[in-house]
Design a binder for these strands. Structure first.
Lengths: 152, 152
DNA sequence: CCTGAAATCCCCCTGTA
DNA sequence: TACAGGGGGATTTCAGG
């Protein structure tokens, strides 16, 4: 799929000012709203724009604890990866799953209401995941998305 | 801010099916569209709903490489954290910055067009960040958001 | 004050040149 | 790509609880 400079401008604006109407985007990117809309549609069909997702402030909802967990899996079962991922997906407190090349195989981002709640999740839902060989955890202080300027 | 069960239902639907119209959302959550809209507005003003972000497929845009970097900073300068974060924010290829409690201080998510490009970013923009004591890198294979069911 | 229905208004989306 | 129009949904208003 061909990406033009206008596409890049458009994407940059979409990322810099999320939730803007098509009309507003058109104005900022120097397009008419019809063109702008068709361009967005094309990016969607081309798979560049995967969709939209609502950004929730878990902290404001009373979920005070966020933890990043790194796993090494045991390599005896070739299906260990799939089994681990499937099980992790079923844990609702897991909000992100990443898989890697290298010594660390997986990373999970987990949220909990408070420390006691985290302990419970950790014991009953994390340590029971299949094929864990090693595991270390990092308490998150804050996440900053560098929305400032994106490489487009 | 008071969060009711109806709010939770609503948020769950918003997360499960992003980009839905207010009318559809209302139907699924068992509300009228006016009430639904007012509730969403209230959640926005209360800071629970931060907004809607476009999800971009960097891979489709030709950014093939994604890396997770973990840093330990030197603790000689109390302003090391701020300096590091400020510098990292200025690197446009850094798409996420997290800070932690513990031995690992920071995590950066970095994207690059290809391996050669990554090498260049790594040498010129990552290794030049201030106050790095230790650093390890993990190549990302894939990210899966567990949008399946969220803890609300 | 909060809810729901109805009215209004805006803006997405499409046809056309 | 620009323009213009129809249709539909977002937002407001208003009456009733």
């Amino acid at each position: 799929m061909q990406i033009t400079d206008a596409d890049r401008r458009l994407l940059r604006h979409m990322l810099a000012a999320p939730g803007l109407s098509v009309a507003d985007l058109a104005e900022r990117a120097g397009l008419t709203s019809a063109t702008c809309w068709r361009r967005i549609e094309r990016l969607r069909e081309g798979g560049v724009l995967r969709g939209e997702h609502a950004v929730i402030d878990w902290h404001a909802l009373g979920w005070e604890v966020e933890v990043s967990l790194r796993f090494t899996l045991d390599k005896t079962d070739p299906r260990a990866f799939d089994a681990f991922i499937a099980a992790a997906r079923n844990v609702s407190e897991v909000i992100e799953i990443q898989s890697f090349l290298g010594s660390t195989d997986m990373r999970l981002q987990v949220i909990a209401r408070d420390m006691a709640h985290y302990q419970e999740i950790y014991r009953n839902k994390i340590l029971t995941l299949p094929h864990i060989a090693e595991l270390d955890a990092l308490m998150l202080i804050s996440t900053i998305k560098s929305g400032a300027e994106l490489p487009l």
